[in-house]
Write a protein that binds this DNA or RNA. Structure first.
Length: 895
RNA sequence: GGGCGAAUAGCUCAGCUGGUUCAGAGCGCCUGCCUUACACGCAGGAUGUCGGGGGUUCGAAUCCCUCUUCGCCCACCA
């Protein structure tokens, strides 16, 4: 703790040690710090899938959560961030199947039990790696409460929920068209079938009437399904087909007789106005079939090959081969009327991208409408708050049109459906049970458990309470439900967020959280989502290694804005993360400097203690930095509260780099070196403002702030910035005059620097400066910081008279104060005249437009008087500045 | 087909309730500096028809309309 700090910040050297120390101290648990005090504040982590290691999207999501949880923890709340991982049914099963495939094996070679064991093996590895990654980026989650969605506890909650919903009539088994992935070989929910616009075709097929008296043309985008047609439907009012209703058609290729039926669902204006009806392969057709008692012929196998239900020559063809074959045969028979390009939406499996096949099958469903109603009400009455607000419209729109949720999956990895079927044909009872059944509760006969597992989201929609011990009434549950903020990405509003709200209301009677902050998606510079398959991903761990966790976090937070995506360049990590690294290094060195000049605990800056710094001991610069610090506390606190993390980051960055480092530290140096009068005051001010800055920044850059904060002299060994009190606005900060007066000092220094740069004055060479103009107030302000001005502008002398000399550089400050830097031979008269001339021109333009504005009666009479007054002030100032410069030019003898 | 968002410096973006942070920040670029915290730095500098067009207003990057271009979400016209 006392070893000298390296001149270059090396995150790798401190991060892991600090993290270990934090967890050893139990700082992330709401049980161990500030026991009993403060209101709880709870965030549920969106549990990452155990499929693979984390990507930048997780980095962003978890950084945001960590910023919020650390902020509230410092504000004294009992902050609990519940971490977990998701078993991710389809995704994980796919990953392990792919690994098996590399050994030439399928899951069927292993059998269910061995396969599931193999998956467990895999998730134990990746699950652990994921948690390590979260720790590497500094996440302050309470690891003692880590869950996995297949844990015993969460499994019990899943089963309890299934059984309760069944008992309430909200879970049912049904025979419907569902979205089927022929690659994953499972049913999907509507949300899991991603609609995507594709350029396809629409084929017009001619079906002859059975009596040979003509034909009807139908249009289809999936011609292969005609093998399963059991009717053609027309609109009952459609004049063209009225006479044909009830007649038989001879289905080509199959030679089956199918009826023409009349159904209101048919749009007579689309295509030919006649629709082929395939009840087993299209949801709309299914409904038509049901209304007309049509048979359903399933012509596809689970792999989307043509089944035995079709004529021999099509059997076992893949659906696309079958499509070509069907079209070829129809064309040969002269029954293919025409083909058109057709853009339409096609469902794709969200896990493997395969085109889903609508398929008739037996599945378990949840009736959602009764749960959607209260979830909608909670939004409408303002219980739920979305940030950004417009996301609430997505949420409510989805709930309004909600459809039942298909929850059964034909997978092996997941929560087995707690349903047992009696194998006694005379009983055949279906039993839904909280406990595993060995025999049928009805007849005592043998039972067989349903083979399917539940949708992975059926466990994650419960985590706000299942992670806290539900269905038991645990202390955690009463303390930490409901939670407060959900931090998520807009792409899982429907999958997860909306469903959590429904389950929370249904089972707990309260929404699981009030605020839903939806951040953007991480994309590359071409605005493509980062993904492994595109190869445009950025590995957060690589960034941590190269730039440090704090740099990663800073860059993510600073680059995000409410409602917009975060763009990063995978080909140029430097462009994305160097700002964060540079800032960390800047902070490190500022800290190094400050700490090396704090041999002992500084005097308190405020308070009732004997040795507290008195106001009259403060210099103008002291008062200025205190005022700036205070303004930053207000701005940052407000920004964190409103989830405007980039604004918080920006305000703190500016305060630390520009105000504190560039100006305050630079000017305070003489007072810190050695034992000079006022040194103790300077140390008190610099220590206090730096301490505040570290605390403000800690939620965003936890490691470096902790490392520096702990090194303050007199700090207790166990003290951690992560539970240090959040800074509060300082009522003693007297803002207006110190901001104005020190602002004048800054302007003067800058003006002299410009003149020096303009005339190439050697950096080491001191010059004189003469200030005149604007009266005693300005002189007094500048006089207060004379040493600062001399030092920062590298002056040998600063005088406040009218100068007898005139050859030199001139400038005028915003309040009309003018500055003159005699430069003797170094000055190029023509150049100076030109400089001043263009400045005068600029001011003249400003003055003219301002006079025009103020001369406008409409403006003067209609604009608010304070605005008019402000504008008048501006005009006066500009005129003054202009006059000063004109006079200077005359003195110089400019033409 | 419906809805939403975005377009500002070479790049990534701020700019919230029209007028003092109004044309900004960071990165990149140019010039000069290894000034005893920091070259991952310091000081100075250049760069913009605020996507196009129209309108409202005393006043528009900001509000309205329209067009263009990107992006996202939703949708059972086969």
């Amino acid at each position: 703790m006392t070893e000298p700090l390296a001149p270059q910040y090396n995150p790798a050297a401190i991060e892991s040690d600090l993290y270990r120390w934090w967890t050893e101290q139990g700082l992330f648990s709401p049980d161990s710090h500030a026991p009993g005090s403060g209101e709880p504040y709870v965030i549920q982590m969106p549990p990452p899938n155990v499929t693979a290691v984390l990507h930048m999207g997780h980095g962003l999501n978890n950084t945001v959560q960590d910023v919020l949880i650390r902020f509230e923890r410092m504000r004294g709340r009992r902050a609990l961030w519940v971490p977990g991982t998701d078993h991710a049914g389809i995704a994980t099963q796919n990953v392990v199947e792919r690994l098996l495939a590399e050994q030439g094996l399928t899951r069927f070679d292993l059998g269910r039990e061995a396969f599931v064991e193999r998956v467990w093996q895999h998730v134990r590895e990746t699950g652990a790696a994921i948690l390590e990654q979260l720790k590497a980026i500094g996440c302050s989650a309470d690891w003692s409460r880590t869950y996995f969605t297949l844990d015993e506890g969460l499994s019990r909650a899943v089963r309890e929920v299934f059984v309760r919903l069944y008992e309430q009539g909200l879970v049912y088994r049904g025979h419907y068209i569902i979205n089927w992935c022929p690659r994953c070989l499972t049913a999907l929910s509507n949300e899991e079938a991603e609609k995507e616009e594709v350029d396809g075709r629409i084929w017009h097929l001619r079906y002859p009437l059975a009596d040979g008296s003509g034909s009807v043309t139908v249009a289809t985008t999936r011609p292969e399904t005609m093998l399963g047609d059991t009717a053609v439907a027309v609109h009952p009012e459609d004049e063209r087909y009225r006479g044909m209703i009830g007649q038989q058609l001879r289905l080509p290729l199959v030679e089956r007789l199918i009826p023409i039926v009349a159904d209101e669902a048919v749009d007579p204006t689309f295509g030919s106005g006649a629709v082929k009806v395939t009840p087993a392969h299209d949801p709309a057709d299914f409904e038509i079939g049901r209304r007309h008692g049509l048979p359903s012929i399933d012509i596809m196998t689970p792999e989307a090959r043509i089944s035995l239900a079709a004529p021999d020559r099509f059997q076992s063809l893949d659906r696309y081969e079958a499509r070509r074959r069907v079209l070829a045969e129809l064309e040969a028979a002269g029954l293919l009327d025409r083909v058109e390009d057709h853009r339409h939406a096609v469902g794709h499996c969200y896990r493997c991208g395969t085109v889903v096949e609508p398929r008739l099958s037996d599945q378990w469903f949840v009736r959602m409408e009764p749960m959607a109603r209260p979830a909608l009400a909670a939004y409408r009455d303002g219980t739920l708050r979305f940030v950004p607000e417009r996301r609430g419209e997505d949420y409510s729109g989805w709930l309004e049109g909600i459809r039942d949720w298909c929850i059964s999956r034909q997978l092996w990895w997941g929560h087995r459906i707690p349903v047992w079927y009696c194998e006694e044909p005379s009983c055949a009872r279906t039993s839904v049970s909280r406990t595993d059944l060995e025999v049928c509760p009805g007849c005592g006969g043998a039972v067989r458990q349903d083979d399917d597992v539940l949708d992975t989201w059926f466990s994650s929609w419960l985590v706000p309470f299942s992670s806290l011990g539900w269905p038991d009434r645990t202390r955690d549950l009463t303390s930490f439900y409901p939670g407060h903020t959900m931090v998520s990405s807009p792409d899982i509003i429907f999958f997860w967020v909306a469903r959590m709200i429904m389950s929370g209301l249904h089972f707990m009677g309260e929404v699981p959280y009030r605020d839903i902050y939806l951040h953007g998606v991480v994309r590359d510079t071409q605005h493509r989502k980062m993904s492994k398959s595109l190869g445009n991903g950025i590995d957060p761990l690589e960034v941590v290694e190269r730039y440090g966790a704090d740099a990663l976090r800073y860059s993510l937070v600073a680059g995000m804005s409410v409602g917009t995506d975060v763009i990063l360049d995978p080909d140029d990590l430097e462009a994305s993360f160097s700002a964060g690294r540079n800032f960390a290094n800047k902070l490190w060195n500022a800290g190094r400097f400050i700490l090396s000049n704090l041999p002992a605990p500084p005097r308190p800056l405020a308070g009732r203690q004997q040795d507290a710094v008195r106001r009259d001991e403060l210099t103008l610069a002291d008062r200025w930095i205190i005022a700036r610090c205070d303004a930053t506390v207000r701005a940052a606190t407000d920004a964190y509260e409103r989830f405007r993390l980039n604004e918080a980051a920006g305000a703190i960055y500016h305060f630390i780099w520009s105000d504190l480092a560039d100006w305050y530290i630079e000017q305070v140096k003489p007072r810190l070196y050695g034992d000079v009068p006022g040194g103790d005051v300077a140390r008190a001010v610099v220590a206090q403002t730096f301490d505040v800055a570290l605390r403000l920044l800690h939620p965003i850059m936890p490691f470096i702030t902790e490392a520096l904060w702990r090194r303050f002299p007199g700090r207790a060994e166990t003290a951690s910035i992560s539970i240090a009190p959040w800074p509060t606005p300082d009522p003693r900060a007297e803002a207006p005059d110190s901001l104005r007066d020190f602002g004048l000092v800054q302007e003067l220094v800058s003006a002299i620097r410009v003149i020096r740069a303009e005339y190439g004055v050697q950096p080491g060479q001191a010059v004189r400066a003469v200030v005149s103009g604007d009266g005693p107030a300005s002189v007094a302000a500048l006089e207060q910081e004379r040493p600062t001005i001399l030092r920062l502008a590298k002056l040998s002398e600063l005088s406040f008279d009218e100068s007898p000399e005139r050859v030199g550089g001139h400038a005028v400050l915003s309040n009309g104060t003018s500055v003159f830097v005699p430069l003797g031979d170094a000055i190029d008269l023509g150049r100076e005249c030109g400089r001043l001339g263009s400045e005068v021109d600029r001011l003249i333009r400003l003055v003219e437009s301002q006079e025009k504005k103020l001369g406008n009666q409409q403006f003067v009479s209609r604009a608010p008087s304070d605005v008019v007054e402000r504008e008048r002030q501006k005009l006066t100032t500009w005129k003054e500045q202009c006059e000063v410069l004109v006079k200077k030019r005359e003195l110089l003898g400019c033409s």
